[in-house]
């Protein structure tokens, strides 16, 4: 009898450590996989066009995704809680226009005030989303689909068909996007800093962990006494705020802004987040992953340009990337479940 017991315990322990290795591996598989994909693209394209491998080009890639990446940080937090924010493109567009327009009419406004204005406006728009979803209990996809329209409409109303061009705004504003910090373009520094800060907060604070908990099992979160409404409101607020900041940078980078700015950005942002391994149903994924997702998509876009493939392929490839990423996830999960089931074989 005692020998059976120890044998059972031993096999159980072995199953435990085996399971741990398996799960840990899968946890990292997404990010590792992305890095492999990234390296493969770099190698393949690099062989074709050496110019692809220059530091200048890498900087170009990072620059091209910096603004998107900032929004993706906010979107990641929203998606972690089992929600989604489709209105980010409209928020970016509206803050970009409003900020540029204020500068056009009051060129003396200090840039820092404009940045604050953009963030505040974004935060307000995010808060409206948060209220509708958290208190109004409207599904996030419906609420933010509505505000996608609403914010874009307000943007058009404010713009009234006008546009702000580079000549209308002071250089100090435009330099937000062109200056370098320690030799690195400011946009990249901003994006990296924001990503690092929020990645750290998600890891180091109770609130950060609670976002994961809420997305992982809302019922368990309620039983554990987490305040779901507050957490959801907070993520939408932060997502709006980051989108607002991204809007300011959009204005500075593209200089010419009308009411159509950043249309469709939400799609690219969600593509980056999902490709980066954030579960669309919440509970798992990291900001680092989302950043990798953005970099992979940015690299593909860049490679297409360098390979002189038609720009018209870009959108199709974004779409295919989303599909490939979720398909891969589904297959991995299925495989993992089968492994865990047969691991418990009697």
């Amino acid at each position: 009898m005692s020998t059976t017991t120890t044998r059972v315990e031993e096999s159980r322990r072995r199953a435990l450590s085996g399971g741990k290795r398996l799960v840990a591996l899968v946890g990292r598989v997404r990010e590792l996989g992305l890095i492999v994909v990234l390296l493969a693209i770099v190698a393949l394209v690099g062989l074709q066009t050496p110019r692809f491998l220059t530091p200048g080009n890498f900087e170009q890639i990072l620059l091209s995704i910096a603004i998107l990446a900032i929004v993706a940080v906010g979107e990641t937090m929203v998606i972690l809680t089992r929600n989604v924010d489709l209105s980010v493109g409209s928020t970016v567009g509206m803050t970009a226009f409003v900020c540029a327009d204020v500068l056009k009419n009051h060129p003396q406004t200090p840039v820092i005030l404009i940045v604050l204005l953009g963030c505040a406006l974004g935060a307000v728009l995010g808060a409206v989303n948060g209220l509708i979803v958290a208190l109004g209990r409207v599904p996030a996809i419906v609420a933010t689909l509505g505000t996608l329209y609403l914010y874009r409409g307000l943007d058009s109303y404010i713009a009234g068909g006008t546009q702000v061009s580079a000549y209308d705004v002071p250089d100090s504003f435009l330099s937000l996007a062109t200056t370098h910090i320690l030799g690195v373009p400011a946009l990249i520094v901003f994006a990296a800093a924001i990503a690092l800060i929020f990645a750290y907060l998600l890891r180091a604070t109770r609130t950060g962990r609670e976002l994961y908990a809420l997305g992982s099992n809302p019922e368990a979160a309620r039983l554990a006494g987490l305040r779901a409404e507050r957490l959801i409101f907070l993520t939408f607020l932060l997502c709006g705020l980051l989108s607002g900041f991204a809007g300011v940078l959009w204005g500075a980078r593209f200089a010419t802004v009308d009411s159509g700015a950043a249309t469709g950005l939400e799609l690219q942002v969600i593509a980056a987040v999902v490709v980066g391994g954030v579960n669309i149903f919440g509970g798992s994924g990291t900001i680092l992953g989302a950043m990798l997702g953005a970099i992979v998509l940015g690299t593909i876009d860049n490679a297409l340009t360098l390979l002189k493939l038609s720009q018209f392929w870009l959108q199709a490839i974004d779409g295919a990337a989303i599909l490939a990423a979720v398909t891969l996830d589904a297959l991995i999960t299925r495989w993992l479940q089968r492994r865990l089931r047969s691991g418990r074989q009697r």
């Binding site: 199709a316 779409g319 989303i322 979720v326 589904a330």
Partner: peptide, 23 residues
């Protein structure tokens, strides 16, 4: 067949099919 959420799938094909139109 793959059991994927339709929201994500059709968000992907939203981009894909439009992209093909441009192609």
């Amino acid at each position: 067949r793959l059991g994927l959420p339709s929201l994500v799938v059709t968000l992907g094909t939203l981009a894909l099919f439009r992209g093909l139109a441009y192609v």
